[in-house]
Nucleic acid binder design. Structure first.
Length: 262
DNA sequence: ATGCCTTTCCCAGAAAGA
């Protein structure tokens, strides 16, 4: 059994007291982490090493930052992806993707650009980014080896993936071009591994910090596990770890945990 | 939510998040 997870930690520094016990008690084999918000030299490498995890981190400072941590081996790391677009300066590609092979599976950890508003240049950047991602990963998707793209996609695939679609009319995360971009990824051979419902109407993964959104059930499913044929066929269970959205110092995202018969 | 929380930059308030 291989247990693979994705979690937007919203600062690895702030979340370390939650991350370490979660890894240990949850018996997580591989975790894809987003929004570490640190440069590589500020990542808590020694804490993860002491916990038994190898780390591949890609961070450039206060924004973005992604990591794969694994206790089942970690090799063939690829930082970013081929022809990853930049927002402005072509030399300033943001730290939003990292890929590694962990035991029997290969994973790409992604933090998809937010997009801000549909008429904002960051929205066009988001669509470019997703398109280029698809081009870059098609080989791994079609390979026989279990492979998945896990992370914060910043897109709710369907209206059921937001707590109130009426609230999102005209917003990012729900527009047709964004959903088309996910459909294209599925068209390459990726399958949306949807967690089972633990509570409420839907397996949401994100709740705003403000206004008691979590307790009101005002969530979104935007943290996704997209697995290729071999990965999807090996899935035995998938859950949202809602407990991690509770308690002291939570991230605004909850982890998604997938058990694989590998 | 017109950002009502949180984080990082760093010690004041901007920027960003979804």
């Amino acid at each position: 059994m291989l247990r693979v997870a994705t979690w937007n930690v919203n600062s690895i520094t702030s979340r370390l007291p939650r991350l370490l016990p979660w890894l240990a008690e949850g018996e997580i084999d591989v975790a894809c982490l987003q929004e570490t918000k640190v440069a590589d030299d500020a990542f808590p490498h020694s804490d993860l090493a002491a916990a038994g995890y190898e780390v591949a981190h890609h961070g450039l400072g206060r924004w973005n930052g992604v990591a794969v941590v694994s206790r089942v081996g970690l090799k063939d790391v690829e930082v970013g992806f081929d022809a990853a677009p930049a927002f402005g300066d072509p030399e300033a590609v943001e730290a939003r993707a990292i890929t590694a092979t962990c035991g029997p599976a290969r994973v790409t950890c992604v933090y998809v650009p937010n997009g801000r508003e549909p008429d904002n240049p960051h929205y066009a950047y988001k669509l470019r980014w997703l398109d280029a991602l698809g081009d870059a990963i098609s080989g791994d998707v079609s390979a026989d080896r279990p492979y998945a793209v896990l992370g914060d996609y910043n897109v709710a695939p369907t209206d059921a993936d937001v707590w109130d679609p009426e609230q999102f009319v005209g917003s990012t995360h729900v527009t047709a071009p964004e959903r088309d971009a996910l459909a294209r990824l599925r068209g390459l051979g990726l399958h949306d591994v949807i967690p089972r419902i633990a509570k409420g109407p839907h397996p949401y993964t994100y709740w705003d910090y403000r206004g008691g959104a979590f307790h009101k059930g005002q969530g979104m499913r935007i943290d996704l596990v997209y697995g290729n044929e071999a990965f999807a066929a090996a899935v035995r269970d998938a859950v949202v770890d809602r407990e991690m959205r509770k308690g002291t110092g939570p991230s605004d995202h909850a982890p998604v945990i997938v058990d694989l018969d590998l």
